[in-house]
């Protein structure tokens, strides 16, 4: 009785999803099986066109790689920040939390402007490096994948850190002390104690970051430029510039399926690793 009652709690959301999300999504799937942009001749033409073009696979791979690189970059600098947070005093922790959520307060419109200023040819980074004499010619940072990953790292940071910190700060501090008392170096404690135990938070963060960076159309096109081609650009071109909605649907479904498979793999890992916590 009680068990039955529990899953029913998901019903209202399921109903909302069925009527507002699933129905349009199914329509999209339907639209993808039309050959012409007027949506009159059913067929597999658009799927064949998209999947038959080697360029599509390059774009799919680049999009997934962009997600992976952003996740790696966010973990590389976000995880140490979480460790620092963990060791900080409550007062400093409050300040850190405010800083961590700050990117969310910057509208995507003006955020792209800020990154043009930071990474541009006459931007902050180049000006500083040239003035201290490290480089003589401006580096090309804007409209490169490196620049794009850096700018994505900023906006993804809260998505990585909020779940990560919430899990890490519930870890028993005695665990670390015990490890240190047993003579383990801080590196060893990090990799054998803290990282495994914080895995559920890390996985949740990676999942959010991966999904959000692979679909970040505005950052991808404005910071990355249109020479770096990812699936959202193709979707935009097909749906809004040439109005070929069947092809736009094909690309959207491809993006959805590719990202969801990576995300499912990640959450499978997450579930396995949460075994560490609850035995």
């Amino acid at each position: 009785m009680r068990k039955a009652a529990e899953w029913q709690l998901a019903l209202p959301l399921a109903l909302a999803f069925a009527s507002i999300f699933l129905a349009p999504l199914l329509m999209l799937v339907g639209v993808s099986f039309f050959n012409d942009d007027k949506i009159t001749q059913p067929g597999f033409g658009q799927w064949a066109k998209f999947l038959g073009d080697p360029f599509s696979y390059k774009v799919i791979a680049d999009t997934m790689l962009l997600g992976v690189k952003t996740v790696c970059a966010t973990v590389l600098i976000g995880y140490p920040l979480a460790l620092v947070y963990l060791d900080a005093s409550p007062r400093v922790q409050k300040v850190l939390i405010f800083i961590i959520v700050m990117p969310l307060l910057l509208s995507v419109v003006v955020r792209t402007f800020a990154w043009i200023v930071v990474l541009g040819r006459e931007g902050v980074v180049n000006t500083v490096l040239m003035q201290i004499g490290v480089i003589s010619e401006p580096l090309r940072l804007l409209q490169t994948e490196l620049g794009l990953v850096i700018s994505l790292t900023q906006i993804e940071m809260p998505l990585m850190l909020l779940p990560l910190i919430s899990v890490m700060s519930r870890l028993d501090p005695n665990m670390r002390d015990a490890s240190a008392a047993l003579g383990a170096s801080r590196w060893r404690t990090l990799f054998t104690v803290i990282v495994p135990l914080s895995m559920p938070g890390l996985v949740a963060g990676c999942l959010l970051v991966f999904a959000s960076s692979t679909t970040a159309f505005i950052s991808q096109t404005v910071i990355g430029g249109v020479r770096l081609i990812y699936l959202p650009l193709l979707i935009w071109q097909q749906s809004l510039v040439v109005f070929n909605w069947p092809l736009a649907a094909v690309v959207s479904i491809t993006l959805l399926v590719s990202v969801l498979s990576v995300v499912s793999a990640l959450s499978y890992l997450g579930r396995r690793s949460s075994g560490y916590l609850h035995g």
Binding site: L28, L207, T215, L240, A248, L256, V263, S264
Partner: peptide, 17 residues
């Protein structure tokens, strides 16, 4: 996973659909 998928579907596609 269904409840997570709006995060993955580009907003443009969802808006149009």
């Amino acid at each position: 996973s269904l409840f997570m998928s709006p995060l993955v579907l580009p907003g443009l596609t969802f808006g149009l659909a």
